[in-house]
Write a protein that binds this DNA or RNA. Structure first.
Lengths: 229, 229
DNA sequence: TTCTTGACGGTACTCAGTACCATTCCCGTG
DNA sequence: CACGGGAATGGTACTGAGTACCGTCAAGAA
């Protein structure tokens, strides 16, 4: 019964001590001692003192990679949304632990930086996936992929932080809505709310350009596909 | 002549040694020794071993803060563009130094993380400024500010990295163009290229909603102001 | 000259992280 | 039961970053 503990006891001891004395004021020896194990054992379970706070970013990264990999060109955006939801759900499952971590990262600069570095890895994953999805290897597409990935991650973090602060009763719904907003942003100017919900589409002309030149744009507008209309 | 050196000599020695042996293989003692100063002096000039690579992020942050502060509600977006250009120019002025740093951060995870943490501070600055500019304290506006700040920073980084890799002959023009793209994204669906350059405005109707209900949206569309049209 | 101030160098310490070795415990095999 | 091997553990010793403290020296002001 006291066997499966080891790793768990270390994490518990760490969080408790960080709460009591603060992060910098707690040494690895302190943690090991309270957990009733040797110092060596600590480093066998966690690569560093910071690691005890962020256990399984690597595993989560793999999950995201897998989710993105199992998607076709048509379902790419759905896969992105799914992947984001996956990350959020991971935090939600942690429950109070995630909130304790949030309190720590809010106070301790070193931990905040570490968290940010992790987020950057997610962003990189999304950026590569989106760029690949766009196919188009022009500089403009590359920038667009970068912006989109940044927005996707920002949207997730926004909702996550709201939940961590206790400001969001239904974060899953919120993140879905936020993702819709992000995807709408990048669908291009030609896809508008009225177009989507079947309410109304408005088109006004102001002369000054050859009408023929406008036809392709008009077509894209009506069909709601990407491109500058 | 050998007096103003101290701090400079340390930086030179550090970069040289990092190039020769790599970052981890270089100790602070090594750097101090090559610079011909004591170890204590190193830490008097730089807070940490990493710091010698990133000298003046703090100063740059202040510059950004100042530039943003000197703007009215109307010139807010121009201030953001200016601030971004300011950061880029800072790197351009560093010239080869910036490229050497880039090579280092590409190889050494600790340095990359550190750089990313710095970037996050810029992003935070922009987010707060944009949120404040929007006024509107709704959750939707808050998300929008977050997305916009993330995109602004991503656009800058995208251009900067291109220049660092030697892929951009005119990064200033590129960053201006990228910022135009970002701002166009967030101007909302109702402001379209044709509206701006006076070429053509297109409005199409599909029935299914009371026409009166559409009038406010139409008005906003024509006037090119934010809001869901 | 004398006093003060600031930059510097040296020593000693704490603590994170690594390497290595010895011990113990568990478990299957003879 | 005895034996052997592997896995988890604990201890010791080391490197290196970062901090604290103190003494020295040089330049300038009184």
């Amino acid at each position: 019964m006291s066997k499966p503990a080891a790793r768990t006891r270390l994490a518990d001891a760490a969080f408790a001590l960080f709460d009591e004395r603060g992060y910098e004021q707690t040494t690895v020896d302190d943690i090991a001692e309270r957990a009733g194990v040797g110092r060596t054992t600590f480093f066998r379970h966690y690569r560093s003192k910071e690691d005890v706070i962020f256990p399984d970013h690597d595993r989560l990264l793999e999950q995201i990679k897998d989710r993105l990999a199992t998607s076709s060109h048509e379902t790419a955006l759905a896969a992105v949304s799914d992947a984001v939801r996956l990350v959020l759900l991971h935090y939600l499952e942690e429950g109070d632990l995630a909130r304790r971590r949030y309190r720590l990262t809010s106070k301790v600069a070193a931990l905040r930086d570490r968290e940010i570095a992790s987020v950057a890895r997610y962003q990189r994953l999304f950026r590569e996936f989106i760029a690949n999805w766009m196919g188009d290897s022009t500089e403009s597409a590359s920038l667009r992929a970068e912006l989109m990935a940044a927005s996707v991650v920002a949207a997730h973090n926004h909702v996550l932080r709201r939940w961590l602060r206790g400001e969001s009763p239904d974060p899953v719904a919120e993140v879905d809505e936020a993702m819709r907003e992000v995807l709408a942003l990048f669908r291009g100017p030609q896809s508008r709310p009225e177009t989507r919900d079947g309410g109304t589409t408005v088109v006004a002309f102001r002369t000054g350009q050859d009408l023929d030149a406008l036809l392709p744009a008009l077509r894209r507008l009506v069909e709601g596909e990407p491109g500058d209309a």
